[in-house]
Protein backbone atom coordinates (compact mmCIF):
# COMPACT_ATOMS: atom_id res chain seq x y z
CA UNK A 1 0.00 0.00 0.00
CA UNK A 2 2.71 2.41 0.98
CA UNK A 3 4.56 1.98 -2.27
CA UNK A 4 1.57 2.80 -4.38
CA UNK A 5 0.18 5.56 -2.21
CA UNK A 6 3.47 7.43 -2.38
CA UNK A 7 3.43 7.61 -6.15
CA UNK A 8 2.23 10.65 -7.99
CA UNK A 9 -0.76 10.63 -10.27
CA UNK A 10 1.46 10.02 -13.29
CA UNK A 11 2.62 6.70 -11.90
CA UNK A 12 -0.84 5.27 -11.44
CA UNK A 13 -1.01 3.81 -14.92
CA UNK A 14 2.37 2.15 -14.40
CA UNK A 15 1.22 0.64 -11.11
CA UNK A 16 -1.91 -0.65 -12.80
CA UNK A 17 0.03 -2.10 -15.73
CA UNK A 18 2.81 -3.73 -13.76
CA UNK A 19 0.61 -5.02 -10.95
CA UNK A 20 -1.14 -7.17 -13.52
CA UNK A 21 0.08 -10.71 -13.84
CA UNK A 22 -0.66 -10.68 -17.58
CA UNK A 23 2.03 -8.04 -18.09
CA UNK A 24 4.71 -10.20 -16.52
CA UNK A 25 3.53 -13.31 -18.37
CA UNK A 26 3.93 -11.37 -21.62
CA UNK A 27 7.48 -10.39 -20.68
CA UNK A 28 8.23 -13.95 -19.67
CA UNK A 29 6.94 -15.39 -22.94
CA UNK A 30 8.88 -12.77 -24.83
CA UNK A 31 12.08 -14.04 -23.25
CA UNK A 32 11.18 -17.68 -23.66
CA UNK A 33 11.69 -17.75 -27.43
CA UNK A 34 15.28 -16.45 -27.53
CA UNK A 35 16.14 -18.61 -24.54
CA UNK A 36 14.85 -21.67 -26.38
CA UNK A 37 16.91 -20.71 -29.41
CA UNK A 38 19.99 -20.34 -27.23
CA UNK A 39 19.44 -23.73 -25.63
CA UNK A 40 19.04 -25.37 -29.03
CA UNK A 41 22.13 -23.60 -30.37
CA UNK A 42 24.19 -24.69 -27.38
CA UNK A 43 22.89 -28.24 -27.60
CA UNK A 44 23.28 -28.81 -31.32
CA UNK A 45 26.00 -26.30 -32.10
CA UNK A 46 24.36 -25.70 -35.49
CA UNK A 47 24.42 -22.06 -36.43
CA UNK A 48 21.94 -20.98 -39.10
CA UNK A 49 23.13 -20.77 -42.67
CA UNK A 50 24.55 -17.32 -43.32
CA UNK A 51 21.87 -14.96 -44.50
CA UNK A 52 18.99 -17.18 -43.43
CA UNK A 53 18.56 -16.61 -39.70
CA UNK A 54 18.08 -13.44 -37.70
CA UNK A 55 20.96 -11.01 -37.50
CA UNK A 56 23.98 -12.00 -35.42
CA UNK A 57 22.73 -15.53 -34.83
CA UNK A 58 25.51 -16.92 -36.97
CA UNK A 59 28.08 -15.11 -34.86
CA UNK A 60 26.87 -16.00 -31.37
CA UNK A 61 28.56 -19.38 -31.27
CA UNK A 62 31.87 -17.55 -31.23
CA UNK A 63 30.85 -14.82 -28.81
CA UNK A 64 27.98 -15.52 -26.41
CA UNK A 65 27.62 -11.86 -25.41
CA UNK A 66 26.35 -11.14 -28.90
CA UNK A 67 23.29 -13.22 -28.15
CA UNK A 68 21.78 -10.18 -26.42
CA UNK A 69 21.58 -8.47 -29.81
CA UNK A 70 20.56 -11.67 -31.60
CA UNK A 71 17.73 -12.10 -29.07
CA UNK A 72 16.45 -8.64 -30.00
CA UNK A 73 16.50 -9.56 -33.66
CA UNK A 74 14.58 -12.76 -32.86
CA UNK A 75 11.70 -11.09 -31.02
CA UNK A 76 11.58 -7.89 -33.06
CA UNK A 77 9.60 -8.95 -36.13
CA UNK A 78 6.66 -10.62 -34.40
CA UNK A 79 6.76 -11.36 -30.68
CA UNK A 80 7.55 -7.88 -29.45
CA UNK A 81 4.94 -6.11 -31.60
CA UNK A 82 2.31 -8.67 -30.57
CA UNK A 83 3.03 -8.01 -26.91
CA UNK A 84 2.87 -4.27 -27.54
CA UNK A 85 -0.37 -4.52 -29.52
CA UNK A 86 -2.02 -6.59 -26.81
CA UNK A 87 -0.99 -4.28 -23.98
CA UNK A 88 -1.77 -1.08 -25.89
CA UNK A 89 -5.07 -2.42 -27.21
CA UNK A 90 -6.03 -3.17 -23.64
CA UNK A 91 -5.23 0.28 -22.37
CA UNK A 92 -8.47 2.21 -22.89
CA UNK A 93 -10.81 -0.51 -24.17
CA UNK A 94 -9.84 -2.73 -21.23
CA UNK A 95 -10.85 0.00 -18.78
CA UNK A 96 -14.07 0.51 -20.73
CA UNK A 97 -14.82 -3.20 -20.68
CA UNK A 98 -14.18 -3.45 -16.95
CA UNK A 99 -16.23 -0.29 -16.34
CA UNK A 100 -13.36 1.47 -14.59
CA UNK A 101 -13.03 4.01 -17.40
CA UNK A 102 -16.08 5.98 -16.24
CA UNK A 103 -14.77 6.12 -12.70
CA UNK A 104 -11.40 7.38 -13.91
CA UNK A 105 -13.10 10.11 -15.90
CA UNK A 106 -15.32 11.28 -13.04
CA UNK A 107 -12.41 11.14 -10.63
CA UNK A 108 -11.72 13.38 -12.67
CA UNK A 109 -8.85 12.54 -14.97
CA UNK A 110 -8.84 14.70 -18.10
CA UNK A 111 -9.38 12.64 -21.21
CA UNK A 112 -6.32 13.99 -23.00
CA UNK A 113 -4.27 13.48 -19.87
CA UNK A 114 -5.49 9.91 -19.60
CA UNK A 115 -4.39 9.18 -23.19
CA UNK A 116 -0.98 10.68 -22.56
CA UNK A 117 -0.57 8.63 -19.38
CA UNK A 118 -1.66 5.46 -21.12
CA UNK A 119 0.82 6.10 -23.90
CA UNK A 120 3.53 6.78 -21.33
CA UNK A 121 2.79 3.49 -19.58
CA UNK A 122 2.91 1.59 -22.88
CA UNK A 123 6.24 3.21 -23.75
CA UNK A 124 7.61 2.13 -20.39
CA UNK A 125 6.31 -1.38 -21.01
CA UNK A 126 8.11 -1.52 -24.38
CA UNK A 127 11.31 -0.31 -22.77
CA UNK A 128 11.06 -2.90 -20.00
CA UNK A 129 10.44 -5.62 -22.62
CA UNK A 130 13.41 -4.61 -24.75
CA UNK A 131 15.76 -4.23 -21.80
CA UNK A 132 14.66 -7.58 -20.39
CA UNK A 133 15.29 -9.29 -23.73
CA UNK A 134 18.77 -7.78 -23.93
CA UNK A 135 19.58 -8.65 -20.32
CA UNK A 136 18.22 -12.20 -20.48
CA UNK A 137 19.89 -12.70 -23.88
CA UNK A 138 23.20 -11.54 -22.46
CA UNK A 139 23.03 -13.84 -19.43
CA UNK A 140 21.77 -16.84 -21.39
CA UNK A 141 24.33 -16.24 -24.13
CA UNK A 142 27.22 -16.08 -21.73
CA UNK A 143 26.03 -19.08 -19.74
CA UNK A 144 25.24 -21.33 -22.69
CA UNK A 145 27.14 -20.11 -25.70
CA UNK A 146 30.58 -19.22 -24.52
CA UNK A 147 31.90 -16.55 -22.25
CA UNK A 148 34.72 -14.83 -24.03
CA UNK A 149 36.37 -12.22 -21.76
CA UNK A 150 34.41 -8.99 -21.68
CA UNK A 151 37.38 -7.04 -22.97
CA UNK A 152 37.26 -8.95 -26.27
CA UNK A 153 36.55 -6.65 -29.15
CA UNK A 154 33.46 -7.36 -31.18
CA UNK A 155 33.74 -7.49 -34.95
CA UNK A 156 31.41 -5.00 -36.56
CA UNK A 157 29.39 -5.91 -39.61
CA UNK A 158 31.98 -4.04 -41.64
CA UNK A 159 34.77 -6.22 -40.33
CA UNK A 160 36.40 -3.68 -38.03
CA UNK A 161 36.87 -4.15 -34.31
CA UNK A 162 34.52 -2.43 -31.84
CA UNK A 163 35.73 -1.84 -28.31
CA UNK A 164 33.46 -2.99 -25.43
CA UNK A 165 32.63 0.67 -24.70
CA UNK A 166 31.56 1.22 -28.30
CA UNK A 167 29.44 -1.93 -28.24
CA UNK A 168 27.84 -0.78 -24.98
CA UNK A 169 26.73 2.62 -26.22
CA UNK A 170 25.62 1.25 -29.56
CA UNK A 171 23.52 -1.34 -27.74
CA UNK A 172 21.93 1.38 -25.62
CA UNK A 173 21.13 3.24 -28.84
CA UNK A 174 19.68 0.01 -30.31
CA UNK A 175 17.42 -0.40 -27.28
CA UNK A 176 16.22 3.15 -27.73
CA UNK A 177 15.66 2.72 -31.46
CA UNK A 178 13.68 -0.50 -31.06
CA UNK A 179 11.58 1.04 -28.30
CA UNK A 180 10.72 3.96 -30.56
CA UNK A 181 10.07 1.56 -33.44
CA UNK A 182 7.33 -0.11 -31.44
CA UNK A 183 5.55 3.16 -30.71
CA UNK A 184 3.83 3.30 -34.10
CA UNK A 185 2.09 0.00 -33.39
CA UNK A 186 1.42 1.14 -29.84
CA UNK A 187 -0.20 4.38 -31.05
CA UNK A 188 -2.29 2.42 -33.56
CA UNK A 189 -3.50 0.05 -30.85
CA UNK A 190 -4.20 2.96 -28.51
CA UNK A 191 -6.19 4.75 -31.20
CA UNK A 192 -8.23 1.62 -31.93
CA UNK A 193 -8.62 1.15 -28.19
CA UNK A 194 -10.47 4.47 -28.02
CA UNK A 195 -12.76 3.41 -30.87
CA UNK A 196 -14.02 0.18 -29.39
CA UNK A 197 -14.87 -1.19 -25.96
CA UNK A 198 -13.33 -4.54 -26.84
CA UNK A 199 -9.60 -4.82 -26.09
CA UNK A 200 -9.35 -7.88 -28.31
CA UNK A 201 -10.71 -5.97 -31.28
CA UNK A 202 -8.21 -3.16 -30.71
CA UNK A 203 -5.26 -5.56 -30.43
CA UNK A 204 -6.31 -7.53 -33.48
CA UNK A 205 -6.75 -4.33 -35.45
CA UNK A 206 -3.24 -3.20 -34.55
CA UNK A 207 -1.88 -6.62 -35.48
CA UNK A 208 -3.65 -6.48 -38.82
CA UNK A 209 -2.00 -3.11 -39.40
CA UNK A 210 1.37 -4.63 -38.51
CA UNK A 211 0.98 -7.78 -40.61
CA UNK A 212 -0.34 -5.76 -43.54
CA UNK A 213 2.71 -3.55 -43.37
CA UNK A 214 5.11 -6.51 -43.17
CA UNK A 215 3.36 -8.15 -46.11
CA UNK A 216 3.48 -5.04 -48.28
CA UNK A 217 7.21 -4.85 -47.65
CA UNK A 218 7.62 -8.13 -49.52
CA UNK A 219 5.51 -7.09 -52.50
CA UNK A 220 7.49 -5.39 -55.26
CA UNK A 221 4.42 -3.67 -56.63
CA UNK A 222 4.05 -1.81 -53.31
CA UNK A 223 7.52 -0.31 -53.59
CA UNK A 224 6.41 3.34 -53.83
CA UNK A 225 4.51 2.78 -50.58
CA UNK A 226 7.32 1.07 -48.72
CA UNK A 227 9.18 4.06 -47.31
CA UNK A 228 5.98 4.93 -45.46
CA UNK A 229 5.25 1.52 -43.96
CA UNK A 230 5.64 1.43 -40.18
CA UNK A 231 7.73 -1.75 -40.18
CA UNK A 232 10.04 -0.55 -42.96
CA UNK A 233 12.98 0.49 -40.79
CA UNK A 234 12.55 -1.86 -37.83
CA UNK A 235 15.53 -4.05 -38.65
CA UNK A 236 17.71 -1.01 -39.27
CA UNK A 237 18.85 -1.19 -35.66
CA UNK A 238 21.69 -3.39 -36.92
CA UNK A 239 22.96 -0.35 -38.84
CA UNK A 240 24.29 0.67 -35.44
CA UNK A 241 26.75 -2.22 -35.65
CA UNK A 242 28.13 -1.18 -39.02
CA UNK A 243 31.31 0.85 -39.10
CA UNK A 244 30.87 3.76 -39.56
CA UNK A 245 27.30 3.73 -38.28
CA UNK A 246 24.73 4.17 -41.05
CA UNK A 247 22.49 6.84 -39.59
CA UNK A 248 20.38 7.32 -42.66
CA UNK A 249 17.85 4.52 -42.13
CA UNK A 250 17.86 5.02 -38.37
CA UNK A 251 16.93 8.66 -38.82
CA UNK A 252 14.23 7.79 -41.33
CA UNK A 253 12.90 5.10 -38.99
CA UNK A 254 12.69 7.52 -36.07
CA UNK A 255 11.05 10.22 -38.18
CA UNK A 256 8.54 7.75 -39.60
CA UNK A 257 7.59 6.46 -36.16
CA UNK A 258 7.29 10.06 -35.01
CA UNK A 259 4.82 10.81 -37.79
CA UNK A 260 2.77 7.72 -37.01
CA UNK A 261 2.73 8.50 -33.31
CA UNK A 262 1.72 12.14 -33.84
CA UNK A 263 -1.03 11.35 -36.33
CA UNK A 264 -2.45 8.35 -34.48
CA UNK A 265 -2.33 10.01 -31.08
CA UNK A 266 -4.05 13.06 -32.57
CA UNK A 267 -6.71 10.78 -34.02
CA UNK A 268 -7.08 9.03 -30.67
CA UNK A 269 -7.39 12.39 -28.95
CA UNK A 270 -9.93 13.74 -31.47
CA UNK A 271 -12.05 10.65 -31.02
CA UNK A 272 -11.71 10.14 -27.30
CA UNK A 273 -12.05 13.75 -26.16
CA UNK A 274 -15.54 14.00 -27.62
CA UNK A 275 -16.69 10.45 -27.30
CA UNK A 276 -19.73 9.45 -25.28
CA UNK A 277 -18.61 7.02 -22.60
CA UNK A 278 -21.47 4.55 -22.43
CA UNK A 279 -19.52 1.57 -21.17
Amino acid sequence: MIGSSDRGAEGVELVKLFSRRRTWVAILLLNLLPTTVAVLLAWTGIAPRPGSGPAFLAAVLANGSLFSIAALAIVLPLFLPIAVAVVAGESVAGEAEAGTLRYLLVRPVGRTRLLVRKFGAITTFVLVCVVSVVAVGYVVGRLLLGNAPLSTAMISLSGSALSPAQVAWRSVAAIGFITVSMLGVAAMALFLSTLTDSPQAASLGALAFLIGSSLLLTVDAARPLQPYLPTRYWLSFIDLYRDPILWSNLERGLALQGVYVVVLLAAAWANFATRDITS
Binding site: P50, G51, P54, A55, G159, D239, R242, L246
Partner: peptide, 25 residues
Protein backbone atom coordinates in the same frame (compact mmCIF):
# COMPACT_ATOMS: atom_id res chain seq x y z
CA UNK B 1 26.38 -3.85 -50.03
CA UNK B 2 23.93 -3.98 -47.16
CA UNK B 3 21.72 -6.93 -46.35
CA UNK B 4 19.19 -7.09 -43.51
CA UNK B 5 21.50 -9.32 -41.49
CA UNK B 6 24.98 -8.37 -42.58
CA UNK B 7 26.97 -6.80 -45.36
CA UNK B 8 29.41 -7.55 -48.15
CA UNK B 9 32.09 -4.92 -48.46
CA UNK B 10 34.50 -4.54 -51.29
CA UNK B 11 37.56 -2.34 -51.00
CA UNK B 12 39.46 -1.61 -54.13
CA UNK B 13 43.03 -0.35 -54.13
CA UNK B 14 45.91 -0.44 -56.52
CA UNK B 15 46.94 -3.83 -55.20
CA UNK B 16 43.60 -5.41 -55.95
CA UNK B 17 40.37 -5.76 -54.09
CA UNK B 18 39.32 -7.25 -50.77
CA UNK B 19 35.77 -8.49 -50.30
CA UNK B 20 34.63 -8.91 -46.70
CA UNK B 21 31.54 -11.02 -46.14
CA UNK B 22 30.31 -10.62 -42.57
CA UNK B 23 28.02 -13.61 -42.43
CA UNK B 24 30.59 -15.95 -43.93
CA UNK B 25 33.30 -14.36 -41.80
Amino acid sequence: TLTPTGEVDSRTTLSGSMVWDYEDN
